[in-house]
Design a protein around this nucleic acid. Structure first.
Lengths: 195, 195, 195, 195
DNA sequence: AATGAATGAGGGTTCATTCAT
DNA sequence: GATGAATGAACCCTCATTCAT
């Protein structure tokens, strides 16, 4: 990649960062191209030169975001720590990237940007899922996980806790009850029967 | 309330229903006053005569919606059925009203319509919470619930499952794993230790 | 039609007149909605309330124009004057409406507004053509027209002269040679063989 | 002209060809500099380096076009064939160059590019007209043309038929009635009196 | 000399809101 | 009290043209 290309990529990234920041706070619809241009210190047309339309810009921003999240995630998955600790970290570690995520962002991802969504699903199915399956199977062998539970259900369950807990409006309430939530995760509402 | 007042209330309700229907499908931002007016078969100005601004209309619609949901909910809470069954119903019964709820709806509720949000919180704190506390306490006494768990944590947990499962994009995936999710709810990932 | 409807129609006509005037001078593309709004003393949005889009406005303007032209034309066709005189008037009478017609107008009619074009063709086929056929047949019987010529060819020929002569850039040159052009029309370049 | 100059001219011609092709299909207004640049495989700025503005580029393209048309035309005029045959060819021969001409092209020529127009008129007056005058005079002497008709009128007449017939929307209709149109050209609507 | 990048001005369109009847 | 009509502001997008390399 020559100097031109590199500068171009840098600027693109710059615009994507600005877009992401604004989108996460205000949502896709409330952010105008004019605002993005201002935030990124470029003219509106420059954005069009790079991304052709608001739709495309949003699509590209999604991809950019997903890649970023995945990069952070992967690191955690590779860590060599005991099973229960890893599960706890997966659920309760609030990722930098997800901090200020705006619900509208996901909504748009689902409804209007199906391409972006497929990209996400692909990544998920081909990289994340296989890893989790392996993780759960290990957990079952080591006696940390009820072997009668389907991996799908466990994955769903963990995904649920993770996503819900990261919702900005919810996160505040989680902190004081983290310990109890961990217990609920492992032993349910019936609780541990340690006899 | 005289005839005039009653007619006025009817018309208001009519507008609120139309607004709610549109909002739930398309979200607050994508629905214009013109569309609401058309759906409700009134002129735009009539809406302004009743609600003064789009903001106010949305606020009123939230209140209207929350009351409606609560009415449905209350019924379930009063039912005289065993504890585990009631918990399952609370979580897995998909309410009519919530069926097609649009994420944007909650978002707006949180961010822009704090008054509406406070109304919701009030209702929740003063009516729902006390009932749940009572319910959990009973559960603890009957041995269905680990007495060491805080009520806040259990409530949070149940709320989480309920809300997450009712997300339209999620609901489809839940059906085949309902049994396992129930087990997870009661016994956690470690599973039942029935010895 | 009540007062409201009538006022509405008047305003519509007003906008159509303004549009027509501007279009004829500058062409469809060079005229902006903003300019039309100014010319008609309404806001841009009012135009959208009536016509929904620029495309629709142009379409309506075409219909309006065609009807207008036809009304003028019909009058001439009904006149009770001798055949040669009528032909000459048809060709050389410059109609008020056609005075400042802009080529772009026809072009758009052809290319983008096919509905409008079909309207025009219908009118032509069902009203104008039958009259001409009748006229030419009379002309042939009275010895004014070569009976071997097809009516289609004659009609084409007359249409050609009429249209070409009314082109603004051409009209100026026609005046001094009107007499000769009449001779050419009736006798061709070979000229009259009055023996 | 040295090598630099020659390359420069080639590039200019290349741009002119691209411009002409696009203009003829879409009209002056619908073609953007960006499109021309793409079609000609140069950057937009290169076009500005050569032609300074869109206006100038269009002007140059007109000149280029006119010269091209004239070159084709001249060939026909020089042919040594009988008078009636030559007239017919002049009118009915559809030139390659004119095949896909866009009405907008003429319009712009008339309204905005008066310089280009003068160039055309000059060419016409100084090269074409004298030739036609000579041709018609020969025609008159040979008895093919009514000697009472002014050369201006005949020229106008032929020009009219030629231009009208070459209009793309018209050309289709001409073919089946070519024979009759020829008769009309030579003998008018009254027809040949061959007694 | 040639290019990629950037831009100000303007176009069509939509929307929440007000005016006038 | 209810309505049709009207509007200013804002939005997405395009284009001829200039800047910087």
């Amino acid at each position: 990649m020559d100097g031109f290309q590199r500068r171009r990529e840098q600027k693109k990234t710059h615009i994507l960062e600005a877009t992401l920041a604004l989108i996460m706070e205000f949502g896709v619809q409330k952010v105008s191209i004019a605002e993005i241009a201002k935030e990124a210190n470029v003219s509106q047309v420059t954005i069009y030169n790079y991304f052709e339309s608001k739709h495309n810009l949003m699509h590209a921003t999604f991809i950019y975001y997903v890649d970023k999240v995945w990069a952070e995630y992967e690191e955690l998955l590779q860590k060599d720590i005991p099973f229960p600790e890893k599960i706890k970290q997966i659920i309760f570690t609030k990722k930098e990237t997800a901090k200020q995520i705006h619900p509208d962002f996901y909504e748009q991802l689902m409804k209007e940007y199906s391409e972006g969504f497929h990209y996400l699903e692909n990544l998920y199915n081909e990289k994340a899922i296989p890893y989790f399956i392996e993780l759960f199977n290990q957990g079952k062998q080591q006696g940390h996980v009820d072997p009668d539970l389907s991996n799908e259900a466990i994955l769903f369950y963990i995904q649920m806790m993770k996503e819900y807990i990261q919702r900005e409006d919810v996160y505040q309430k989680v902190l004081p009850i983290t310990e109890d939530l961990t217990k609920l995760l492992f032993y349910g509402i019936v609780g541990k029967r340690d006899n």
